[in-house]
């Protein structure tokens, strides 16, 4: 590295000049965010050395070439597709992602260790991204699904769907919504939902709706990691200590009655599958059984022989019939947005 010209500010202080007991200068606190303008540089400098940072050097340790998952995708609804059924179908896939994302985000600052705190937040953000695209698609296909907001409200349709619908209007499966328990509970829930979702998205890549196909293509890579993460932890907890195994078995026993619902087909899913737009979750049952069977076997865990949690009059989460946990979750999730329906964020 060459000597800076005279006009540039001198280094604050090189690290080996800083002795114990010296006051720490502003910006050099050990936990402050790396500052790219710091002359002595940050640990990320090496990553940046070979990057073209011209015009963009205010961003440190950034990735490059971020992709818009819908770039170049034709967003018009195919002529022969029932737009309101497509919207309902997008809400089902989108609400699963939205609700599970929120449950995972509740772990922020509470996970067993820092690394898994970040891992869970990453997964929550992946799912939130999928939810945004799917809710936006639902609104584009059938604007009548979007709750009305006061005149002049700047809230976009995807936010209106997320923050201004009541529990009875959400179409997620109940497994996504039940309140968090311990870490094992989260691992079991994530394993089952990611396994089903990956199998569904893998088929949805061939959807006749180009937007759903693009969202699925993006989602497959994300959910593959989610399933892998949950599967690893499932086996680790199952084969770990006596206490970790006890907790895992308790979580399996508690959640298994809810694990049938994601594989049950709703009439909207059946209609969309027949139209070549959606996926019948019944079709993925064999794949899901095989994957879960492999993970259960690796963990030495028997598949519980329990009845599925019944719906009410045949109605389940996909029909808008939910547990009380969802109302409580939405109350917290939506309170700020609902207090300021014309707010700009």
């Amino acid at each position: 590295m060459s000597t800076p010209p005279d006009s540039s500010p001198p280094p604050l202080r090189s690290s080996d000049e800083q002795s114990v007991g010296d006051p720490v200068p502003d910006g050099l606190m050990s936990h402050s965010a790396p500052d790219p303008s710091r002359v002595e540089g940050s640990v990320y400098d090496g990553l940046l050395e070979h990057h073209d940072v011209v015009g963009d050097d205010a961003r440190w340790a950034f990735g490059t070439a971020f992709e818009d998952p819908l770039a170049g995708v034709d967003t018009t609804v195919p002529d022969d597709v029932d737009a309101s059924a497509l919207a309902a179908y997008c809400l089902m896939l989108g609400d699963d992602a939205l609700v599970l994302s929120h449950r995972l985000s509740e772990w922020c600052s509470r996970a067993p260790d820092l690394e898994d705190d970040i891992a869970l937040a990453n997964i929550a953000l992946d799912l939130l991204g999928q939810a945004r695209l799917l809710l936006a698609r639902a609104a584009a296909a059938d604007p009548s699904v979007v709750p009305p907001l006061p005149e002049g409200s700047p809230v976009p349709a995807e936010d209106a769907l997320a923050f201004f619908r009541d529990a009875g209007e959400l179409r997620n499966v109940r497994l996504a919504e039940v309140a968090n328990g311990d870490f094992a509970h989260t691992v079991v829930r994530l394993l089952v939902l990611a396994t089903v979702r990956l199998a569904v998205l893998g088929r949805l890549v061939g959807s006749r709706d180009p937007v759903l196909a693009a969202i699925a293509a993006k989602g497959v890579k994300e959910v593959t990691y989610h399933r892998d993460y949950a599967g690893r932890w499932f086996v680790t907890l199952a084969q770990g200590t006596e206490e970790s195994r006890r907790r895992l078995l308790a979580a399996v026993a508690e959640l298994w009655p809810l694990c049938e619902e994601p594989l049950q087909v709703h009439e909207t899913e059946r209609a969309m599958a027949r139209a070549g737009v959606g996926v019948d979750p019944g079709e993925v049952r064999d794949e899901v059984d095989a994957v879960l069977g492999q993970v259960l076997a690796a963990g030495g865990v028997d598949r519980p022989d329990v009845a599925a949690l019944a719906g009410v009059g045949g109605r389940t989460g996909r029909h808008g019939l939910h547990t009380e946990a969802l109302s409580r979750m939405l109350a917290e999730m939506q309170v700020v947005a609902r207090a300021h329906p014309t707010g700009r964020w």
């Binding site: 090496g46 490059t64 070439a65 690394e115």
Partner: peptide, 16 residues
């Protein structure tokens, strides 16, 4: 990094 030529130390973490 994406167009980097070598691995660079970025930090540390705990793992089992």
């Amino acid at each position: 990094g994406k167009r980097g030529l070598n691995h660079v130390h970025v930090g540390s973490l705990h793992a089992a």
